[in-house]
Amino acid sequence: MSSITIGGLLRRPEAGAALGLVAVLIFFAIFGGLTFLKPAGMSSWLNVAANLGVIAIPLGLLMIAGELDISVGAMVPFGAMTVSVISGHYGLPIWVGVAAALGFGVIVGLVNGILVVKTAVPSLIVTLGSLFAVQGIVLGLTVLITKSTSVALTVEGPAKAIFGDFVLGGQMQVMVIWWLALTALYIFFVHFSPFGNWIFAMGGDKVSARNAGIPTDRLTIVLFILSATSAAFVGMCQAILYNSAQVAGGQSFIFNSIIAVVVGGVLLTGGFGSVVGIFFGTITFAIVTQGIYYTDFDRNWSSLIIGVLLLGAVLMNNTFRKMALSYTPKKGARA
């Protein structure tokens, strides 16, 4: 498309997410005023969006490739607990804890990926298994080592500033910067570098993609490593930020990231979606969960809004996808 047209924008995968975001912004602007768009209000939902977004994008890429990873729900506490036990309980240098947390992320991702590739068991089942297995490891090992389900961690210096501090006046988490930087990186790799094409091809038709010479097995494993490591990273940063880690928690990331991805226009069966869409979907989700505090509504209603939003977004995305499929340029419309 040489020029930007309304039709052209609507056929993009992120169209539904962008419209949903606008709708949510208008809704909360009417019922809650503009407080949530002022710096103090913004950081409340930006923090939620950042922690979710760092996990949602790699999860979204897996979904574009036709897979799913719900073990992220266990990887968040696993990452948090690893860094806290190593650098808090045992008092080893923080960088050892950071390396271990990310290293375990790589290992779990590798196991997930290899199991999915070698056994051809649906990835939902494989990662459901690893979700519970990792939860068991976290709880079992933590209690065995520390005799407690909560471990304190004190981090100072550069590690604190890089992974778990507040920036810009002390309310916005440094994770927001990570999220924005990673989003930019993902946009480059998925939409501009040739590798992105492979992910879409895998989700579209795995056998054809393999026959076309795409290393589908290796790419699948890399994507699983990416999602597990990202989840471990978020957990690790949260532990450094809040100076402690709990064995529970993290399960909310499973559904929340899937919602962000689906609202963001990714097709559940794979082959369609965009990083920008996931980005919008994440912000939309965060604004709904946080914006409710700025309105007179009871916060319990936010789940209702999210549910309606999810269904609305999916229906809207289906419509736009059909438009994109049936689109034929009019004769003479282009030179």
Partner: peptide, 20 residues
Amino acid sequence: GGTFPLMSIGRSFFIGVEPT
């Protein structure tokens, strides 16, 4: 056709050998 329904003609044509 062994092609990818949700990819553009250009992208699916060059799958695996993308011009850069």
